[in-house]
Structures are given as C-alpha cells and as structure tokens.
Design a protein around this nucleic acid. Structure first.
Lengths: 259, 259
DNA sequence: CGTAAGATTGACAAGCGTCAAATACAGTGG
DNA sequence: CCACTGTATTTGACGCTTGTCAATCTTACG
C-alpha cells in the first residue's frame, strides 16, 4: 500500500459521493462532505484494501479505479457483494459491527480516501439534511441487495448475467455520461461467477451463448451490448427510480449553527 | 383493513424499535421515537399491508404479529425478502424511490403504525444521535441482506435452511428473552421456499431429512431445534456482533435545542 | 362432515457443478 | 524480440442437486 496525505489531482470533483443523486446540495454541505476524507492511499490491483474481521471497521471512499466487496465462507468459497466504482462509499455496512463483515479488494489500481468517523458523526449534528441523505442512500443500497437477492433466488444464469450487464451499464452511465453501449469490466469469469452465484465454467458457457445469439460482444475486460432492449427484457427485475429532493427532508443549514 | 387512531394496549413498550440494540437512549430520545407513530391499523392474516408499486412509499412500524416483505417478478414468481417481527420498521428501503419496491404482507393478524415522514425528518434535526442510529440500523440490515445473498449464492438447500432457523432463533431471542429451543414459524413450506430460493417440494424434502436426522422437530407453524450446535455448524456463515454506543456517535441532546 | 389449503411422495428432466484437459493470452526476463 | 510461464478462457464428459408435474394424504376449519 502506498500512502499519501494529499488527495490525487483531479479526484476532487468526485468527493460528493452518490448522495448528490438524491438531492441538490448547498455549497456548505458539499464542503462538509469533502471534509470527510481523511488519509489518502493508493493500492495496486488485487490488493486487499480492508480485510473482513478487521476491527474496528473503517469507512472508505473510492476515488479512482474499481473495487469489490466480498464475504468468505469457512469452506473457502466466497460471494462478491458489490462492484464499487469511483464515488462509492465502501465499508459502510460494517460500521455497526465489532468486526468488519466484508473484504474490500482492488480490481484495478485504485486510489482511496479513509473516511473519518468523527467527521461523519459531526455531519449528523451540523447537517441534518446530509444525515438524512446518508440514511436514504443506505436504503437505496438495501434495494439493490434486495434485487440481487431476488435475482439469485429466482433467475437462472442467463437472466442473472443479463441483469448484471444492464444494471452495470445504467450505473456507469450515471458516472460517465455520454457512454455508449460498451464499457469496461475488469473481472475474470471466475469473479463474475462469485458475483452471480455461479461457477466460472457455467459463466463461460452462458456468456458464450449470449454472445452467439448476438446479445453482446466480449473482449478481455470489456463488454459491448448489441441488443440492449432484448437484453433488458431478459433482465426481468422491476425497474427502480429514485425520487430527488423529498419534501420531508430537513432544510439545508447555512453553516455552523449553535454549538 | 381495520383502522383505529389509538395504539393498541400493551404495544407501547415496543415502540423504541431495533435502535435500542445499537445504543442506550435518553428518555427524550425514546419520546421522540414514540412520536413517529402516526395512524394505527390492524390487518388480518394474508392481508396486503402495502403493495409494491404504491406511491409515494410509506413507512410502517410493526407492533404485533408477523409480516413479510417480498418482490414479485413479471413471471409471477416472488422472492420473500425479510420476515418482520414486532418492533421492526417496515418499508424503509423504498423511501428514496418514487414507487415502493416491496410488498408487505401480514403472515398473522398484525397491528401496525404508520410512521410520519415529517416526524422522521424532524428527528434528524432534533436528535442527531438518533439520526446516526437510523443510519447504522440501515447498515445492519444491509449486512443481513449481504449474508442472505451469500447464502443463496453459495449454500445448498440444507445449509440455507439450517442458517435460517439458527438466525431466526437468535433474532427471536432478542425480542423474547427466556425463549427455549422452540419457536413459532407462521410460514407454509411454499413461503419458506420463496424465502430461500427453493421450491416447496424441495423444502419439504430437505426439512424432512433434517427432521429424520434429529436436527429438529416440526409441527404446523412451529419449529423445535434439537441439535442446536450441530445445526449452527451447518449454518456456515460468519457470526456477526454489533458494537453498542460507538464512540463517534453524536451525544444525546436534552430536548429542543436552538431553533 | 365436507372442503380447501397444506404437506408428502414418486418419477422424471433440466440446470448447473465438478473434473480434467486444451487453448489463448499477458506479462516477464534474457 | 522471443521463449517462458502463469493466468484466464474454452471445451467435453459426467453426475448431482434442484425443479417440474402430478397424485395422494393430512389437517384445519366452516
């Protein structure tokens, strides 16, 4: 691990996290979010950013690169839980636990900021609206997990893969607008299997069949969706749309109020 | 649905939700939580408390009885997401969405309070510590979903059922301390299947085999665990323990501070 | 006492995992 | 620049877990 106390150039604009997707923020709130980032670090591909079992569990902010969170079982098998892209908060689920539940692994070279928990606590005091947005953001993640659970329980390999690609495409579009039908996917087929509850062999067979039927094209670490609408039809989960600036949210606070 | 504006007798002590498992609360905070409950209602067994797609999505507090949240797919299959017991907040994942993601169904006769979203917003302003605890509670739910996802992806029917029973037993112990090795389970085998990503037929075969091997005994809507430690060994997911009163949490506020 | 919902059982099929080997590819050192 | 080596992908044969279909049995309840 390579540590540096200065943020990497150009990453600054990313700090407002996913939360900006839920509401418009005041400049003060933006500044408070930026204040969350504590120590900056970079990790090489395949490096472990945070190991499950670690205590106390820390909180991380992904600035550049891809990462993944996973759980490992006693028999050595593992489940990949979520792919993290720049702007993602990582490790939050373990915050209430005494030991971290998930391992965070760098899929590419990444740069990461450690989030100060004291600063997070202060945000709930100084910026109730941000606190509520953090709460809502966690609920959004719950919906995602619920949908993934539904997929694992009720969809076969073909449908799960279709859903994953459509979902990833939509998620990446939010980050990189103007993206076409193609995107990077720095995952091996074994990792795809661990993500979808399949074996690498079966992932290969299914990918190959989707390719043969013209749904998509594959290269190393790169996917191009050819028949987007058909693929989306395969991805049979209900659509989700977030509602911005909910009326019951607390108002933005100007700056530091009564202390 | 049977509506009443008065809380049912005896339910009052339950209102402090799961949040008391994360920290000790001041009396003011307890009172604020009680203020969340808005309109009270009762529903008969099998009644739909809230339908997915409904808008705007409401928030509910389960006072008495069992309920379940589920997602339905286009082909009619459904995934049960979570069993709710008294004290549970229901419907929170849909809060950031424009339409409710999950259907809430009464498994037994239930009594439910509707939660006022305005009151929830006010809590983030008046009681930052409670806001942070709501945030942490959502993270705890994420961990549960992550574990369920891991189970669906990596465990076979036998292990999934073992995990469910052990997990349910532990959860019910928190609500009803002094509980033995037996507990009610108001679910049909088909519903168990929908919860675990299996078919009713296969649930039956697996339950029957666990029974035959002396792991447990079954009656209608009732489970008794006989070989608890062995069953727990089958339930091969890592243990989770929450840490109470985390140091970075905001302090309790006395009452209504500067407005 | 009748009826419907739930539990049980058996025969069979399909999807996916396992094992093992072959092939393609990327990165490395000489 | 090339041979070398480990990693990732691909392929085939086979078996097991789980699903499907359909019938029967049991229990709760009007």
């Amino acid at each position: 691990m390579n540590k540096a106390s200065e943020p990497p150039a150009g990453a600054d604009g990313l700090l407002p996290i996913r939360i900006t997707e839920l509401a418009d923020l005041s400049t003060t709130e933006m500044a408070a979010l930026r204040g969350l980032a504590d120590r900056f670090a970079t990790h090489a591909r395949h490096a472990i950013i945070r190991q499950e079992g670690e205590m106390p569990p820390g909180l991380f902010f992904l600035l550049e690169g891809w990462a993944v969170s996973s759980v490992t079982l006693a028999d050595g098998s593992r489940q990949l839980l979520k792919l993290h892209v720049p702007g993602d908060l990582m490790g939050a689920p373990s915050l209430p636990l005494s030991r971290a539940a998930e391992t965070l692994i760098a899929l590419t070279d990444v740069s990461v900021a450690q989030v100060s928990l004291e600063a997070l606590g202060e945000i709930f005091v100084q910026h109730p609206r941000l606190g509520a947005l953090f709460f809502l953001s966690a609920q959004e993640e719950r919906v995602l997990l619920m949908d993934r659970l539904t997929g694992m329980g009720r969809l076969d390999a073909r449908h799960r893969i279709a859903w994953l690609f459509v979902h990833l495409h939509e998620r990446l579009r939010l980050v990189a607008s103007g993206m076409g039908a193609a995107f990077d996917l720095p995952l091996t087929q074994e990792q795809l299997g661990d993500l979808l509850g399949l074996t690498a062999v079966h992932v290969n067979r299914t990918l190959r069949s989707l390719d043969a039927e013209g749904y998509l094209k594959r290269e190393r670490g790169h996917i191009e969706i050819l028949r987007y609408d058909d693929l989306k039809r395969l991805a049979a989960l209900p659509p989700r749309t977030v509602r911005r600036n909910l009326s019951w949210l607390p108002p933005s606070r100007p700056s530091r109020p009564g202390r």
